[in-house]
């Protein structure tokens, strides 16, 4: 078990290193000299130019440059934004909490309501099931940004229940500000996860292990929890994990719709501003978050299925 965990974590670290290398190397692979890319059309003082040269170690061999950059990044030093003349880390520390809050809030919404609705639907065939399925049919057809605009129009503008702009300050104010964006982000995923949960619950309820459990006189509660739901969790976790990882990319759209100064927003403006250091830093963080979430999902998934966890060794 712990050996398995170790292997997963090692794999993750290797993947993170490779990704960081690719992101760093993109500075050199992009057309034009790193110099031109870094400074673009900006006119910079010789002092800044020297500082950037130092930061990127542009005069050193490539691998050494990468190594310096990596060590800096690991110390939280992402260099200086040429456009804004401020440390990139400072801009990140303003944007990252907004995005993190949004992703976690949305992930909780997706997992809790998707699983609850799916289980309910599977256990109560009939009217409730039909209602939930109709709702998810609509839900899966609505793109995230459309959902965002509709929510904004109804609950933000018309009913005025939630703020329409900005991320708020302090936990509860932020919760209020990020509710509509989180719901918009979760909308499609909840609908999809509900369907996946319903299907896999149904399958398990019809399956052999459930029949065996019922034949032993176990109560419905035990049969549903210990057998149907427990077994259905394996596909549910896989899909939920992919969705949460997908949220990280989804924030870029939602932050635009709701005017949130998160990482997605920062990424877009930095690209427009040709602010290379910031683009690099944000890409690195988003991709790293994606990899970490995926690894967590892999670990959870294998913990749920002993056949994978222990390998198929017969005795």
């Amino acid at each position: 078990m712990s050996r398995y965990l170790l292997r997963q974590l090692l794999g993750m670290i290797v993947l993170l290193l490779v990704t960081s290398f690719v992101i760093y190397a993109s500075l050199f692979l992009a057309p034009g000299s790193p110099d031109a890319l870094l400074f673009g059309a900006h006119t910079v003082s010789p002092a800044l130019r020297a500082a950037v040269n130092r930061q990127y170690h542009l005069n050193d061999p490539f691998l050494q440059q990468y190594w310096y950059w990596l060590v800096n990044v690991l110390h939280g030093n992402f260099g200086t934004s040429i456009t804004y003349r401020t440390p990139v880390a400072l801009r990140l520390s303003a944007a990252a909490p907004v995005t993190a809050f949004l992703v976690i809030y949305s992930a909780i919404l997706i997992i809790v309501s998707g699983v609850a609705l799916g289980v309910l639907s599977a256990l109560r065939p009939g009217k409730l099931d039909t209602l939930i399925m109709t709702a998810t049919n609509i839900g899966t057809a609505v793109p995230t940004f459309v959902a965002g605009l509709i929510l904004l129009a109804i609950f933000g503008v018309k009913l005025n229940w939630f703020p329409v702009y900005g991320a708020g300050a302090g936990f509860f104010d932020r919760l209020r500000h990020l509710t509509l964006p989180a719901v918009a982000l979760a909308f499609w995923a909840v609908a999809y996860l509900t369907r996946v949960t319903r299907t896999s619950m149904r399958e398990e309820l019809q399956g052999d292990p459930v029949m065996t459990a019922r034949s032993r006189g176990l109560s419905r509660r035990v049969v549903v929890q210990r057998h149907a739901f427990r077994n259905a969790l394996i596909p549910i976790v896989t899909v939920a994990g992919l969705q949460v990882a997908g949220l990280i990319a989804g924030t870029v759209i939602v932050e635009q719709v709701f005017g949130l100064n998160g990482l997605g927003e920062l990424l877009l403006t930095s690209v427009q501003d040709k602010d290379f250091a910031t683009v690099q830093a944000v890409s690195l963080i988003l991709v790293a978050a994606f990899i970490v979430v995926n690894t967590l999902v892999d670990i959870t998934y294998t913990m749920l299925d002993p056949r994978i966890r222990l390998g198929a060794n017969q005795s």
Partner: peptide, 25 residues
């Protein structure tokens, strides 16, 4: 009643234990 009957009076051996015994427990 059925639960009590299955729990005490009659029990079934299924054809394929690999399919019938829950693999996760």
């Amino acid at each position: 009643d059925w639960q009590r009957f299955r729990a005490t009076k009659a029990a079934m051996i299924f054809q394929d234990p690999r399919a019938s015994i829950n693999p996760v427990h």
